[in-house]
Amino acid sequence: MTSVTLRPGGPLLSGAVYGCLLNVQEELDRLGDAINQAPYHGAPSGPVLYVKTANTQIAAGQPVPIPSDVEQVRVGAALGVVIKDTLTRAGVEQARSAIAGYTLVNDVTVPHDSLFRQPLKQKCRDGFCPIGPGLVDAADLPDPATLTVRAFVNGECRHQWCLDQLVRPVATLLADISDFTSLYPGDLIIVGVSPDAPLAGAGDTVAVEIDGLGRLENRLVSEGEDAR
């Protein structure tokens, strides 16, 4: 298997990091009839994106600081897709060809209910996006829909889900995003997070695993704690 080690201790990617809400079927199912009410008025016709700002990005093994006003966070075990070619209004096959590779992401999030606005306060705290430890070439994982995503807390698997549950499969998601915003080399897309993402708090060690991609592990620490 060909892999490229992501650069530790600094910026992990050269581009933007986007996450996608409501791209796991269970998320939509749990909204029930509420999806037809304001402000949704039906299932989304396109991807619902949010950003993981540069301050969130850390490497495998680095501590995730938990702010003093936060008791627990959700361990958002997810697949990350790294782009190698510019995509603008692309078709599905063009989008598939533009995938450089895949990596592990922990989309750490403060629990919240509202989807009415960008969840920046809940998703963009310092260190809330561990990425890595490596980038696996797309040719070595031709069908990500067959992969299972697992979330661990203190060595125990607390939740797993399969990527065949995505509302928009990986290449379709990239193509649909490119309809309204261009994607560039070095950008990373978090394809979705299960609504059953487990909770963890300061002092816990959390990990993400996907078969063929390895293990991304980080310790949660109280903000300001020297974890070394």
Score class of each variant (00 low, 15 high):
Leu6Val: 08
Leu12Pro: 01
Gly15Trp: 04
Gly19Lys: 15
Cys20His: 02
Leu21Ala: 11
Leu22Trp: 10
Asn23Gly: 08
Gln25Phe: 00
Glu26Lys: 10
Glu27Ser: 09
Asp29Ile: 04
Asp33Cys: 02
Ala34Tyr: 03
Ile35Asn: 00
Ala38Arg: 05
Tyr40Pro: 00
His41Gln: 05
Val48Trp: 09
Lys52Tyr: 03
Thr56Asn: 10
Ala59Lys: 01
Ala60Phe: 02
Gly61Phe: 01
Gln62Pro: 00
Val73Asp: 06
Arg74Tyr: 01
Gly76Met: 11
Ala78Leu: 03
Leu79Tyr: 03
Gly80Leu: 14
Gly80Ser: 11
Thr88Pro: 00
Gly91Trp: 04
Gly91Tyr: 03
Val92Met: 08
Glu93Gly: 02
Ser97Leu: 11
Gly101Glu: 04
Leu104Ala: 07
Val105Ile: 14
Val110Phe: 11
Ser114Glu: 13
Leu115Ala: 12
Arg117Ser: 10
Arg117Met: 08
Lys121Arg: 10
Gln122Lys: 09
Arg125His: 13
Phe128Gly: 08
Phe128Trp: 08
Cys129Gln: 06
Gly132Cys: 07
Pro133Val: 13
Pro133Cys: 15
Gly134Cys: 14
Gly134Ile: 14
Ala145Cys: 11
Thr148Met: 11
Gly155Cys: 06
Glu156Phe: 05
Arg158Pro: 08
Cys162Val: 13
Leu163Phe: 04
Leu163Ala: 05
Val167Leu: 08
Val167Arg: 08
Ala171Thr: 03
Leu174Glu: 15
Ile177Lys: 04
Ser182Gln: 07
Leu183Gln: 06
Tyr184His: 15
Tyr184Phe: 10
Ile189Cys: 12
Ile190Cys: 11
Val191Phe: 01
Gly192Arg: 12
Gly192Phe: 07
Val193Leu: 13
Pro195Arg: 03
Asp196Ser: 08
Pro198Tyr: 07
Thr205Leu: 03
Ala207Lys: 07
Gly212Asp: 01
Gly212Pro: 01
Gly212Thr: 01
Leu213Trp: 12
Gly214Ala: 15
Ser222Gln: 12
Asp226Asn: 15
